[in-house]
Simulated scan of single mutants.
Amino acid sequence: MSEQLLPGYIIRRGSLLERSLLLKFIQRTYQDLFPDEDFSHLEQTVKQYFSSDTPLWWVEEEGEQGAGSREQGSNKESLSSAPLPLCPSAPIACLWVGNAIDQVHGNRHAHIFILYVVPEHRRRGIGTALMRYVENWAFQRGDRQIGLQVFQSNKPALNLYNQLGYQTQSLWMVKFLSAEK
Rank of each mutant, 00 (worst) to 15 (best):
I126P: 09
P55R: 04
S52L: 03
G98R: 08
Q145T: 06
H111G: 00
L86H: 12
Y133G: 05
Q72A: 07
L130Y: 09
A100Q: 14
H111T: 08
D102Q: 06
G63A: 11
Q149K: 05
W58P: 12
V117A: 05
E61Q: 15
A110T: 05
I126M: 09
S69G: 00
V104K: 10
Q72F: 00
S69V: 02
S89Y: 01
G98Q: 05
P119C: 06
P88C: 04
P83D: 10
L115D: 09
D102Y: 04
G73M: 10
W137C: 05
S52W: 00
G63K: 12
P119H: 12
R144P: 00
A90F: 10
Q149R: 08
E120G: 11
F113I: 01
F113D: 04
I92W: 03
S78Q: 14
W58Q: 04
Y116C: 04
V97E: 01
N136A: 15
R70I: 00
V118E: 15
V134H: 02
P83E: 07
A138Y: 08
I114R: 00
V117M: 07
S74N: 13
G106A: 10
F139N: 12
I126R: 10
D143W: 04
S89T: 13
A90Y: 07
G125Q: 07
L56S: 02
W57G: 06
D143Q: 05
K76I: 15
H111S: 11
Q103P: 03
Q140R: 15
Q103I: 08
G68E: 02
P55H: 03
E60Q: 06
L84P: 12
S80D: 12
G147R: 05
I126A: 10
I101D: 03
N99A: 07
Q149F: 07
E120A: 15
S74L: 13
G68N: 03
Y133T: 07
Y116T: 08
